Simulated assay, not measured.
Amino acid sequence: MADQLETLALSSYAALGDSFTEGLNDPAPDGGFAGWADRLAGLLAERRPAGEFHYANLAVRGRLLDQIVTEQIPRIRQLSPDLVTFAAGGNDILRPGSDPDVVAERFEAAVRELRESTGKVLICTGFDTRGVPLLKHLRGKIATYNVHLRAIADRNDCAVADLWSLKTIQDRRAWSEDRLHLSPEGHQRVALLAARALGLETEMDPAEPWPLEPPHTAAELRRENLQWAREHLLPWVGRRLRGESSGDHVQAKRPELRPY
């Protein structure tokens, strides 16, 4: 009950991160992207009188941890929101040769800095990639990073949205066609998970099983994998070989705390 009362008292929220938090592949009515952070802001705003809840989203697709620390955390010192969600390091972990131990050290330094400027911090663990082509080979690195994140949360009194243990997010329907970003329903389940991690009661359950659907044949799966590799995997690999980012020239979609 205490956690819920504390969450109900929140009047401002700022989201930090990369494409996951920017909300890629969850279309918004204005033609941009919504995403789990926007959806979480909506759940929090519902508990406040109209116009009294303020929300900023500083996340930008493709950002590495150090870029988030340099570009986004200074804004938190200026905004001083009641709540910050901080999901970062995933793009670092995906890079060849990255060390999850080193990334975690930089992540904790950022968390400590955030704790000086905000009342509450929520962090997200990485997804379980066991069923994702190519990324399934990074599962061990992600698991190692997640162990660090949980320890960091304990040491710094952070809430945790444990994406790794949310089994329903491993369903293919939780992901968009590129298999790197969530579908609208996937974003909704993450928003519900984050709300519950903050102590908020939600009518919908993020772990609610998906409706049954007919199984795919082996031929259908091969065809889908080939199409995915051609349309999404190869361009993604190409950008990394060229040193490009999908976030080049992209600005934060909601840089100021505005009524939500």
Rank of each mutant, 00 (worst) to 15 (best):
L16R: 08
L16F: 05
L16H: 04
G17H: 11
G17Q: 05
D18A: 15
S19P: 09
F20I: 15
T21Y: 03
E22H: 10
G23H: 08
L24F: 02
N25C: 15
N25V: 09
N25T: 11
N25Y: 10
D26A: 12
P27T: 07
D30V: 08
G32F: 09
G32L: 15
A34N: 06
A34G: 05
G35Y: 08
D38R: 03
D38A: 03
R39G: 02
A41K: 10
A41N: 02
G42K: 05
L43D: 03
L44P: 04
A45L: 04
A45F: 02
A45N: 03
E46R: 13
R47F: 02
R47K: 03
R47N: 01
R48A: 02
P49N: 05
A50P: 14
F53V: 01
H54F: 11
Y55I: 03
Y55Q: 02
N57C: 14
L58N: 11
A59Q: 07
G62R: 07
R63Y: 04
R63G: 01
Q67E: 15
Q67G: 14
I68S: 01
I68L: 01
I68E: 02
V69N: 02
E71G: 00
Q72A: 11
Q72S: 12
I73S: 01
I73D: 00
P74W: 00
R77Y: 11
S80D: 13
S80M: 13
S80T: 13
D82C: 06
D82Y: 11
D82M: 09
V84P: 15
T85H: 03
F86W: 15
F86M: 14
G89N: 04
G89K: 00
G89Q: 04
G90M: 09
N91T: 02
D92P: 02
I93G: 09
I93M: 09
L94M: 00
R95N: 07
R95L: 11
P96H: 04
G97Q: 09
G97M: 13
S98P: 00
S98A: 09
